[in-house]
Design a protein around this nucleic acid. Sequence first.
DNA 1: TGTTAGCACTCAAATTCCACGAGTGCTAAG
DNA 2: CTTAGCACTCGTGGAATTTGAGTGCTAACA
Lengths: 341, 341
Amino acid sequence: MLTKRQKKILRAVVEEYIVNAEPVGSRTVSKREDIGFSAATIRNEMADLEEMGFLEQPHTSAGRIPSQSGYRYYVDHLMIPDRIEHPDLLMIHRLFSSHMDALEQTIQQTVSILSRITNYTSIMLGPELYDNKLKHLQVVPLNDRMAVAILVTDTGHVDQRWITVPDGVSLSSIEQMVNLLNTKLTGIPLHHLKQTVHKELLEEFSRHVENYEYLLSMVDQMLASELEGRVFTSGTTNILSQPEFRDVEKIKALMELFEETETVSRLFSNKHTGVQIRIGHENHLEAVNNCSIVSASFEIDGRSLGTIGVLGPTRMDYCKVVSLLDLLTRDLSQHLGRLYK
Amino acid sequence: MLTKRQKKILRAVVEEYIVNAEPVGSRTVSKREDIGFSAATIRNEMADLEEMGFLEQPHTSAGRIPSQSGYRYYVDHLMIPDRIEHPDLLMIHRLFSSHMDALEQTIQQTVSILSRITNYTSIMLGPELYDNKLKHLQVVPLNDRMAVAILVTDTGHVDQRWITVPDGVSLSSIEQMVNLLNTKLTGIPLHHLKQTVHKELLEEFSRHVENYEYLLSMVDQMLASELEGRVFTSGTTNILSQPEFRDVEKIKALMELFEETETVSRLFSNKHTGVQIRIGHENHLEAVNNCSIVSASFEIDGRSLGTIGVLGPTRMDYCKVVSLLDLLTRDLSQHLGRLYK
DNA sequence: TGTTAGCACTCAAATTCCACGAGTGCTAAG
DNA sequence: CTTAGCACTCGTGGAATTTGAGTGCTAACA
């Protein structure tokens, strides 16, 4: 357990380092208004804090910087979330009060705003489509071999894919099949579509549609849509302004990371409610060992729709980011709620 | 006019520099097999070539590097396009002989292969949709205020947008209108849709559809689709391995460039036939002053569909890139031709 | 007993200095 | 016209030196 004074000092060191990105010495701390002790006293306390693992020294004759447990203690016990500045509030308010755009646009704009306000890289996962329900299915033939299949969900998401038409299948039988599927599948969650077809509709199929065996391969092609949410990013270059990324190798590792949506998706996924903070090694990934990821989910009716998050150096302005994410996910959830009702 | 020997030497310098990224001295050149002169002779010639502006010296006691006009002369007069290596050929062949994917996937795979083979950043513009013809129009209502409009073109491109339903417009009248539009607009090029509606269909509208004034605003929303081609990139991080990008500032400028699709689109646009090379300042953009852009268009029936290109340092392996782009655009054109017929 | 001033000490970063050598330009001989 | 030889240039890299921020320890003080 830390004494009150130690907490004060730890907090001062973290906040000072977040701003200046340079090791902070005892003198700097003692000169802060909220600290009433001499540099010598601070030195003693800082030595103790280092022994406890909350601070570390780059080298003997330098000041202290927070260790990863130092940051962890800070976000868990010492941090007081910022109030969001007025111009930022205004920008967010304007985004969500604007007329309804397509979902993807809203998402893209949200990440974009987040990265502009924080000056870190921001990322959004989702929304996942698993339990979206089928609203409409459409097949548009392009020629006698190719057709476009279009799936619309109740949330207004549109999914498309090209399918090849098996030999010997007529346009009219395709049409017949699509009609049948539409009447039978509307309202079924996407991740149940395939098994519903195979379990319940096979019989119906064989009765109403000729050549149904061939058509089945088409249906399977149609329904093999991607259910995972997409990854949206914004401000990937922001992080290059941070002094901890002067090294080209680090930049490269990070940029390559962003090109792998798979990994990004894993890094940012967040099944908890509320804002989640992962500091450095807590991410279990070499490339982000000196980065922190702050993320939060947005939801409708308690059902998580996706995640929005920020990636920055461990020396991140947690106060600002946390309060911002809190606000954004609230507003986003509300906005999407209005949209879907 | 350069003498034969000068050409030989210029070529040697350029090729040597492309490989090693270090100033090449007279000794290095004289030791090449295809050069039969002593270092001293080369020195004299190199001094002349420098005077003519084809070579330059970083400092007095260093070798020469090609100037931008040096590269220009090289690609215009000295370069002999490479034969493409077998494994690369195989990869490309496999891409285009695979079953037909959706257009976007083919495109993404093409850029990806290009960047992997060249180790530079590769980019594709397009395809532009201006003269694609409408194949099918569909409106799927989500609730009483929102609907999704879906546009399918004859090339299988699907465009979607959310539209708001004006008050007092019934679902049935929307249906009626969509039917009308489908019969009247199918086969019309996308960039004519709007004016066709306003010029030729207004009258028809007023006769068949009630409340047509309200519906018109919906139609306008639907048809305001984006006709410019999208920008696809791959291997943005490749360029970070090049020794000319050890400087974080340069990296940042370039990465920020990639985030601006507008500028990227302008940089790579290529209205000529055949492979086009733009070297350094010829791009008229600060961030790519020491980069070259090689691009080529792909087309169907002589009609340009889009552009594919490569961005690398001016010290680029032009031979490889040119022959590769030549092959890729040919194959791509052919592939798309097969697809659309 | 807790706090503070003073002082010697440490060590990274910046600066200066120096030797090395790759490469040049010029000259004179072949 | 070509080439060997030589003096000269200048960037590179390493060693030595200086500088200064910051520490730990000790002793005095409240």
